[in-house]
């Protein structure tokens, strides 16, 4: 049953990825006439036909799409129109580690802070701690992160000189971008954990756990928390979406040399091949991450692992 669950998810993801590639391809065809870019003002209609043939633009759209997909699988995502016209794939691989590090640190921070905050809020329901946690969560969900990044930079770097304003290299460079990036997720995790924890603490199996004579800490952090994490995982997909958006704006604000900033630079320069490549790459990442979440989900909740009934 586990296997059919995974293969079903795989199928769904392949469809999503395929759809995204169609969107990217069609949008690419709309970016203006690539032939006109390559020809000089003195070219003849014969020249134009020749270039079209070379680029495969005289073929039906479906065949063009086929060729596009084949190239994507070969890792040929086109060349940047800027500078030394490096292949887009190369640019992505160069920038990806920095993005992965930042997102990984931010995700870790989100859970390390968000989960305990949600638990504490739920167990102190209606008290000051609960109020404070909910306030943090509310503000975290209401602040535009790119602005928050600029404000943190202004406060800690410009005014207090505690941290580097931007760039990449040392641990200190991680602090501001990671803090900015995790705030929204912390807020979301806190809210989710609190809401499901409040429900679950009234469950009969929590009563039974106490009847067994287990210490309250085990009741909360083992019995209640494991169940409370299930709804959190449900929303992991939207966390990833937020992290991708976050990557673009935060890497831009902090001059972080990742793929998010690559996307922003490409947008500024209208460098379509690079944008297209980054978007496809991020989509694949996003979809892959969602698959990992599904596996985690199955691991936490045995009802999914073995299929219901």
């Amino acid at each position: 049953m586990m296997l059919s669950f995974i293969s079903k998810r795989f199928g769904e993801m392949a469809v999503a990825l395929l759809l995204m590639s169609v969107v990217v391809f069609l949008l690419g065809r709309m970016t203006g006439d690539p032939v006109a870019l390559l020809l000089s003002d003195y070219s003849t209609p014969q020249d134009q036909a020749r270039v079209e043939r070379e680029l495969g633009l005289d073929q039906p759209l479906v065949e063009q799409y086929g060729a596009f997909i084949v190239n994507v699988f070969k890792g040929e995502l086109g060349n940047s129109i800027m500078g030394d016209q490096s292949p887009a794939a190369e640019l992505i691989l160069e920038r990806f580690p920095a993005s992965l590090q930042l997102a990984g640190v931010a995700l870790l921070i989100s859970f390390l802070i968000g989960v305990p905050l949600g638990v504490v809020a739920a167990t102190h329901r209606g008290k000051t701690l609960d109020f404070a946690a909910r306030l943090v969560a509310l503000i975290g969900q209401s602040v535009p992160i790119f602005w928050l990044g600029i404000m943190l930079m202004y406060l800690f770097s410009v005014r207090l000189h505690l941290l580097p304003t931007s760039g990449y290299g040392t641990a200190a460079h991680f602090v501001l971008p990671a803090a900015t990036m995790s705030l929204f997720t912390i807020a979301a995790v806190t809210r989710l954990v609190r809401a499901s924890m409040v429900d679950i603490l009234n469950a009969e199996y929590i009563k039974l756990a106490r009847i067994k004579g287990l210490p309250e800490s085990v009741v909360i952090w083992k019995h209640a928390l494991r169940n409370s994490l299930i709804p959190v995982l449900t929303f992991m997909g939207s966390f990833f979406a937020n992290m991708i958006t976050g990557a673009v704006v935060i890497e831009t604000v902090f001059a972080w040399p990742g793929i998010g900033r690559l996307a922003y630079e490409a947008i500024l320069n209208r460098d379509f091949p690079v944008i297209q490549a980054v978007v496809l790459f991020m989509t694949a990442l996003f979809i892959g991450a969602n698959l990992v979440v599904d596996l985690l989900y199955a691991w936490v909740d045995p009802r999914i692992r073995y299929g219901r009934r």
Binding site: E204, Y205, H223, N227, I230, V300, D301, P302, R303
Partner: peptide, 10 residues
């Protein structure tokens, strides 16, 4: 209630 007295994840 036996349906809800056991923790579903263990």
């Amino acid at each position: 209630d036996p349906m809800t007295s056991l923790n579903p994840v263990f």
